[in-house]
């Protein structure tokens, strides 16, 4: 902007970080409501929840947990890399993160389509014939993992935008707010999964 020296771009990394955190709080309460519904119905129908949860594939759940934890680390490392001015390394680490997100979604696809084969989806005749508690469990399972998967997809798009901007040099050592905030969003996706995983897949 050398022709307009008075129109300096406004940068407020601290302010945008606080804004990102405020958004994260609203996300926490969105999932918090679902966790509360889960707690109430699990208390009311513990036997049915136990029975229905045995249908879930704990192995895929564990695998996806590991995938998300690793991806959280690669995002955190990519922020370290850009802070040190190494945008090539930051891009490489973000590509690993995007790959991890894709692995997560492919696993989810196989997990869900396997259930659909057995007609285990909300509103199907098989699910309608189950006990009331089991219907509620499947409703919550699809709602919570579905909403979480939507967040994975949004995070994926954000990370790709960050990669593009790193390549074009718009995110640099001095201006990396978008990178940092997208990282925070990705950690939020991980944070929610940390609670979803034991509550849905590991009921014994």
């Amino acid at each position: 902007m050398s022709t307009h020296p008075t129109h300096n771009e406004h940068h407020d990394p601290e302010g945008s970080k606080i804004g990102m955190w405020l958004f994260i709080f609203t996300e926490l309460f969105l999932f918090g409501g679902l966790f509360l519904v889960y707690a109430v119905f699990r208390n009311k129908y513990s036997a049915e929840f136990h029975h229905a949860a045995e249908e879930l594939n704990a192995f895929i759940g564990t695998m996806n947990t590991v995938v998300l934890l690793v991806s959280s680390m690669t995002v955190a490392m990519s922020v370290t890399a850009i802070q040190k001015g190494n945008s090539k390394k930051a891009i490489g680490l973000l590509i690993l993160t995007v790959l991890a997100a894709l692995i997560f979604m492919v696993n989810k696809y196989f997990e869900w389509s396997h259930k659909f084969e057995f007609n285990l989806y909300p509103g199907s005749d098989v699910v309608k014939g189950l006990d009331h508690g089991e219907i509620l469990f499947y409703g919550l399972y699809y709602m919570m993992t579905g909403l979480h998967a939507l967040h994975v997809l949004i995070g994926l798009v954000l990370l790709i935008i960050v990669i593009v901007r790193l390549k074009s040099g718009r995110i640099t050592k001095d201006h990396y707010s978008l990178h940092e905030n997208s990282g925070l969003y990705w950690h939020l996706v991980d944070l929610i999964w940390i609670f979803l995983f034991p509550l849905l897949y590991l009921i014994t």
């Binding site: 959280s72 955190a76 922020v79 950690h187 991980d190 940390i194």
Partner: peptide, 19 residues
């Protein structure tokens, strides 16, 4: 136990990964 471990994991993510 599952909830306590999940809370410890969550706190770790918030403290270190989320800086």
């Amino acid at each position: 136990v599952a909830l306590i471990i999940a809370s410890v994991k969550g706190a770790t993510v918030l403290t270190y990964f989320m800086h």
